[in-house]
Every structure is written in C-alpha cells, then in structure tokens.
Amino acid sequence: MDEALKSIIQEAETKTRELTQRAQFEAVKAEFVGPNGSFTALRKEIGKLPKEQRPEYGKKINGVKESLESILSATLTRIEERELEAKIGPAIDPTLPSPDIQMGSEHPLTQVLNRIVDIFSKVGFTVAAGTEVESEYFCFDALNTPADHPARDMQDTYYINEEASFQNIKQKADERYVLRPHTSSVQIRTMLKEKPPLKILSPGRVFRRDTADATHSANFHQIEGLLVDKNLKVTDLKAILDYFARELLGKDAKVRFRPHFFPYTEPSFEVDFPAAHLGKVGKKWIEIMGCGMVDPTVFEAVGIDPNEYTGYAFGMGIERIAMIVYGVDDIRYFYQNDQRFLEQFSR
C-alpha cells in the first residue's frame, strides 16, 4: 500500500508535467481523485484495515492527498497562465497607428458661439431660441422700424413667397414672412411670452440679401443679449461688455463705445475691441458689435412699462469674431467645409 501511495505521487508528477489543456487536466485529475480514481480507491482501502492501523494509514493518505492537491493546483495554475497568455496574444507594437476613426471636430463657428455663450452664462444669461423664418412685424415693426423707416434700407431682406405660410410661426396680422435679418425677433417674442426681469441670449442664423464675397455671406450668425430689469444704466451695459472683452481677450482688455444709431435702442453705441489684443497692428480699435439701452418704443410694443423697466441689448456677428480670433480672412471658408480647414479647429 505504501508503495502504491508513493507511486501515485510519481505517476501524478509525470502525467501532469506535460499537460497544456484544461480538458486533459480534468481527465488526468479524474484518474486520481475522480470517483474511479486510483487515489480514491486507495482512500477507500482504509475501511478494510484493522482499527489500530487506521490512524497511521490515515496520516499517510492525508500526506499523499496534500501532495496530490499541490501538484494538481500547480498544474492548473500553469494551464490557466498559458490560457491567459494565449488570450493576450503576442506583444503588440504600441506605435502602430489605430485604424479607428478618432474624435471629430466642432465647427469653428460653433466653438466661438459656445465660448461667447459660456462667458455670458457665467453672469446669468440663458439661451432663448426662435425661428429663422420670421414675420415682418417681429423683425421690424416691433423693433421701432416701421415700413417707411429709412433704417429698413440698411437691411436688405429675403422674402418668402406669399403662397407659403408656416404653421409654427405666428404672424402678428397677415404681414409677410422673411428670413430674419437679425436675431432681435427672439427678444421680442421672449418679452411677449415671459415677464421681466429677463436676461437672455439669442444666438442663431440670420440672412441678408448680400452678394457673397470675402466679408458677405447669404447667411451668417449672430448672438444678441438682452437684459430687462429695473434701474439699468449705461454703466451696466459698459460693465458687461468690458467683462466680455476681458473674458475673451485677456485681463486688461476693455471696449470702446461710439455713439451710433439703431432704431431699437436709445442711446445706441457701436463697440470696438482694442486691436492690439487681437494681434492686429495699424489700427487702434476694431469694430465688433452694436449695443444700446432698449428704446422705450420697443418696450411699449411688447407691453412692458418703460417707466418701470429699463433694459440693454447688444449683438455681434459670430463670423466676424471668429475671423478676428482665428485670423481667417474670407468668410466663405466657414461654408466650404474643407476637411483641411475643419480639422485645424479640432481640439
């Protein structure tokens, strides 16, 4: 019996030495410890022994059992390691290029727009939306620009065919539909729908009937801001735009106000950025946007009491800012969508 026990260990060592597959291992394991295994048979022998021999035999059996277990578990570990290795495969060359498509890019105009929205969001402005097709009333009349106003000259507007009407764009009466020439119509509709105080941004696409060239495009983008509250002052307007300039261009940047005329604001200003901050030389200031205090007539048109509330509004062209910030010299690049252009703005 001792012999048999000894030979089991030897046999186990021999048989497991070359094992590489889990199935083979299980078979070999069964040969020893399975129901019909040789070790199982030897263990059963203990019952046949006289009582006094049993403890000694038991000790021996246990010793063999431990050895057997350690042989088997070592074998299993070895097999598992090999399996794992097989799964992992050979070492890779990490410098090989990935064939997968990589992160895409956001259009430079989106990036500039987001940056501007972020800057104003920090001080409490939120985005309001409107449609790109609008009716004349919301683009002109409500903005203190009646039909015979010379200022309508300044905006040559696209009109929609008279047969077309838009189910989700409400007219004031039966005035014509236009492609909005600015996003101020969003301000009008928001003021009609929501009660002051209001603090909104209206970014979006606008349309002018211009012949396309390096600085003109049939459609372009604007963002306008509107704050309606009590006791707003010109200094508040200047402060918010100085803040904007600092955020966009750097700590010591500020804006210059030039008196101007817009029908919907009084007083009105054009706003310049310091050219030096934009890396431009030769000029001290670069015109960047228009702004002003909301004209009382506009408030009256939307049913806000101009004696109770004041407001300011500002608006700028996204393309213009993008062109200045990125040094793009032709607006048409933004609409040609050449990959060689777009991928330069991938971050």
Binding site: E106, E132, F334, E343
Partner: peptide, 20 residues
C-alpha cells in the same frame, strides 16, 4: 450641444452649409 458632443465623439466633423 449634446448632439454635437455625441457626433464629435463618434468621429464626425461638424459642417455649416447654407440654408438656401
């Protein structure tokens, strides 16, 4: 913005075409 981030992460490049 959610759409834009999603598409960008899928490897797409954003373009701007004319509305007309």
């Amino acid at each position: 913005n959610a759409y834009s981030q999603y598409m960008r992460n899928k490897g797409y490049a954003e373009v701007y075409n004319y509305s007309l």
